[in-house]
Nucleic acid binder design. Structure first.
Lengths: 308, 308
DNA sequence: TCCGGCTCTGCACATATGAGCACACCGCTT
DNA sequence: AAGCGGTGTGCTCATATGTGCAGAGCCGGA
């Protein structure tokens, strides 16, 4: 292509894409037909003279996110860019806290699970509309990362009412569980579950290290569940590889039921790091959550169907 | 703006600008109105999420070129990017040769003036449609840069017929000029002038160094012309600052007349370097040329109305 | 010289798009 | 309770735009 042709393409492209002049008007300006202008602009596009770039804000890989969203039919998916594959909690927490700030409104009721990533999210929460905060599960895990701690931190940020559950995640026998569920404060929280409109939950893989729940069982029970196909849990609700519920110790749990969880309009899972690919895949297929915040590495593995 | 909103903007922008999906279809995909899609895309544009860049090919500044073209109402203008303001001939010659290759067709008749820049153009001419080449002016200047040399070099490239003028640019008296014009070979060339469809000419400023013509006059004549307002010449046709013809030694010239030059459909001037701003401005205003190939420095000065 | 393929052009017609407008909703004040 | 700006939404209607198609010119080969 010669310089005259090139100059005309550049000039017309400028006029259209930068000055916003319509093709019809450009055609009038230059005394050519609008079809010709359209075709010249198409040429400019094909030749790479006009480049359209989507400049995503840093911190999130929107291409991976969108692919993930489509693959699992989610309401939203966000893949946080993290420095490496190990220290992903901070990044996921940051994105999740921004997400919460964005979507939580005054009359939401927010349900909260436990976990390291959720704790990071809560710590990074700068502002949040005042709303009720309900603890979705009993207490488990390291101090400062239990659902009770997270619930408290969030309520401190937004000044909302709190519905904590001062009770363990899993208790040794059914009777104790029933007793606890009848405790007025706990009952008050659990009665509020149907009102929850948004929830943040963690996803655990079925290993002692990658689940808050696994270590609470005796190892025989845990292994028996593994043999029955459990690969993941969220809110201590165990699921198999295809996302099907595998009823485990439900009657000994203190927390939201799977049916109640599914009725929450907006359930956001937070999960990242090595070893969780199959678990996240399973929970996303379970229908118990409709949004995911993860890291780019895990997102890529989910899309590539490669477990870790 | 929160990550969800941002992700949606990015996702929609991708779909529209990269995948080419219409706003209506995107609206259907996402179950929202087309107005909303339009407004989201506008937001994405305003927020800088979508960036449209016009990637010009190197070697030419198309922005300056276009501004120049509009300012002088030219058919085309090209500002060559050159390493510095002194060695501009190579760059201008390169662009001009590419331009010639592009626009010259088999049944064009090409008229050629003399000068350093035109010589550079001719040397860099790789391929050119076969066409007749006519010398527009007598010989002047350094050997190898006369119109005769340039005409020959061009014809060697394209194998076309040549109409040279073996005669000086300017002769001492009217009689000699008339005699030469009646010489069969010269007459044959000059009779061909009305058939010329495209021409390349140089622009000289009215100083001994910056014009092929000035040194051919005795200094008294030259200075007298300067007093009459001559600031530039092309093809030894002198013009004043507003582009008006100032009849100088026309009867002693051997070359195309101003009326004949104006009748050529496409006259391309080549000029660049320091000290030529007023001269180029004048010639562009004269209506004798309708295209310019110059360097970016001179182009910028022409646009800034700053003489050098 | 004729012919087939090729490119370029502009048309008709269906869609897509832009712009102003009215209306509903919301939080806030009087 | 009523008033009231601000915001977001979808409407109508005039334009702008995309697409398939047919004709014109052009070129190379039979």
């Amino acid at each position: 292509m010669g310089p005259e042709q090139h100059a005309m393409l550049v000039s017309i492209a400028r006029r259209h894409y930068l000055d916003g002049v319509s093709k019809v008007d450009i055609a009038k300006e230059r005394g050519i037909s609008r079809y010709k202008v359209g075709r010249l602009l198409q040429t400019a596009l094909d030749e790479g003279i006009v480049r359209i770039e989507i400049q995503a804000r840093g911190g999130i890989d929107y291409e991976l996110s969108e692919a993930l969203r489509v693959k699992y039919g989610l309401r939203r998916a966000l893949a946080a860019e993290t420095p490496d594959e190990v220290h992903v909690h901070h990044g996921i927490g940051q994105v999740a806290s921004a997400l919460l700030s964005e979507i939580v409104t005054r009359d939401d009721v927010l349900g909260v699970d436990c976990g390291r990533t959720l704790a990071s999210m809560a710590r990074q929460l700068h502002s949040l509309e005042r709303c009720d905060v309900v603890q979705l599960t009993g207490m488990a895990g390291v101090i400062g990362q239990t659902a009770t701690d997270i619930t408290r931190v969030i309520s401190e940020v937004n000044g909302g009412r709190v519905f904590p559950i001062y009770a363990p995640y899993i208790v040794p026998d059914v009777h104790t569980a029933q007793t606890l569920r009848n405790h007025p404060a706990i009952r008050s929280a659990m009665n509020y579950y149907p009102k929850i409109t948004k929830a943040c939950v963690a996803i655990g893989a079925w290993t002692p290290e990658l689940s808050q729940m696994y270590p609470l069982l005796n190892s025989a029970d845990a292994q028996r569940l593994a043999q029955r196909g459990v690969v993941a849990e969220t809110c201590a609700l165990t699921v198999g590889a295809d996302g099907q519920r595998i009823d485990a110790v439900d009657e000994r749990r203190i927390g939201v039921s799977d049916t109640a969880l599914k009725k929450i309009p907006d359930v956001i899972a937070l999960a990242g790091g090595r070893g969780k690919t199959r678990a996240v895949d399973a929970v996303l297929k379970s229908g118990m959550v409709n949004s995911i915040v993860t890291d780019t590495f895990l997102a890529a593995r989910l899309l590539g169907d490669r477990p870790d």
